[in-house]
């Protein structure tokens, strides 16, 4: 863990767009409109990712973690979605101000994405060779005559056995875990500087999950790439993240290093998540402490802090005013009016 601590990024202290962090997101807002209803899926999210760092975004369904990731690359279907505010600086350039052509140069090239569903994210009528080669051809990264060698090399890197014969196979001939390896190989094809992995192992069995995550860790470390790991699994986060953003109702409610988040959680929601998570090393049949109530309706948020109706620590102020994300200690940030001391 000492490594993770030494890796502490410069984070929010840096001015937007400076070169200290690879990615800098400032007050990002994405909404989805349905008739007169407006759902604030991402509601003023700011964070940064340092070079070589793995940032985990954790939250339950509907917390806005995936929409945040999709917004970074402007992959939100519009309509109904729209990014209404914010900046996303990647290496000093604002992705949200770019033309579609400029952005296409970045997608799959400097920033690559791995999606949750390896079954549906690959094209069923193209061979693995065609799909692996596509990003390299589009971005002119590799000379045409070297593409085959590079494809084989990528399949070897993601440890697909017998790559020569597998290269001309179709996705349906692969198992779920193998398809996710192909997805990773595609994402790595242009050696991206930032990898966004959206629940990369949720659809997979646990022994395969461990293999895929170890692989992602090794490969990002090898290439010195940064990673945004989106997941609902706190165990995965504990094993692989340097820093963590906890999201609830479209906002970051707490942000800190893995040790800070797990050992001194300062937001009641983070605390609630940790207490309600079943643990393998729990004492026998230990009782879980759930978070009471139901997740909020994003189209109809309560006034004040969105967590206040479920929060055991809530005071009057919480029901009136929305707490900003502010430093608690150094780079450990929290959005809460109350001081939660265990």
């Amino acid at each position: 863990m000492s490594e993770a601590i030494a890796n502490q990024p410069l984070g929010n202290a840096s001015a937007p767009g400076t070169t200290s962090s690879l990615l800098q997101v400032d007050s990002l807002r994405t909404v989805f409109r349905q008739g007169r209803r407006e759902v604030k899926a991402v509601d003023g999210v700011s964070f940064s990712v340092a070079r070589g760092e793995t940032l985990a975004i954790v939250g339950e369904s509907g917390s806005g973690k995936s929409v945040t990731a999709m917004s970074l690359l402007r992959l939100i279907p519009s309509p109904p979605g729209e990014i209404i505010d914010g900046d996303v600086f990647f290496d000093g350039r604002n992705l949200l101000d770019m033309t579609e052509d400029e952005l296409r140069d970045i997608r799959g090239n400097e920033i690559a994405m791995i999606f949750q569903e390896p079954m549906t994210s690959l094209n069923p009528v193209l061979t693995v060779r065609q799909q692996l080669a596509e990003p390299m051809r589009v971005h002119h990264k590799v000379k045409e005559e070297d593409i085959e060698a590079r494809c084989l090399d990528l399949l070897r890197q993601v440890r697909i056995p017998d790559p020569e014969t597998r290269l001309d196979a179709y996705p349906h001939q692969f198992s779920g875990g193998m398809r996710q390896r192909v997805m990773i190989a595609m994402a790595l094809a242009c050696e991206p500087r930032l990898l966004i992995a959206d629940e990369p192992t949720t659809a997979l069995d646990v022994t395969v999950q461990a293999q895929i995550l170890e692989l992602l860790k090794d490969l990002t470390r090898q290439h010195g790439s940064s990673m945004i790991l989106i997941t609902h699994d706190l165990g995965v986060v504990a094993r692989y993240a340097d820093r963590i953003n906890v999201m609830y109702a479209g906002r970051v409610v707490e942000s800190g290093t893995a040790l800070e988040i797990f050992e001194q959680p300062r937001h009641p929601y983070t605390l609630g998540l940790i207490n309600s998570m079943p643990r393998l090393d729990a004492s026998e049949k230990a009782r879980l402490i759930p978070i009471e109530g139901q997740p909020p309706d994003l189209g109809n948020l309560p006034p004040g802090c969105p967590f206040s109706p479920r929060c055991p620590f809530a005071v009057d102020q919480c029901r009136r005013e929305d707490p900003p994300l502010e430093p608690y200690q150094g780079q450990h940030l929290k959005a809460c009016w109350v001081n939660v001391d265990e």
Binding site: M1, A4, V206, T207, Q209, A210, Q211, E214, D233, L234, G235, V236, V237, A238, R239, A258, L259, F262, E263, I274, M277, R279, L280, D281
Partner: peptide, 21 residues
């Protein structure tokens, strides 16, 4: 193997564990 593949939500415990691939 199954047990060792499951991560524990505790970074300190995780750093002590050996991931058995």
């Amino acid at each position: 193997a199954l047990l060792s593949a499951i991560p524990i939500p505790d970074p300190r415990a995780e750093s002590r564990r050996e991931v058995d691939p």
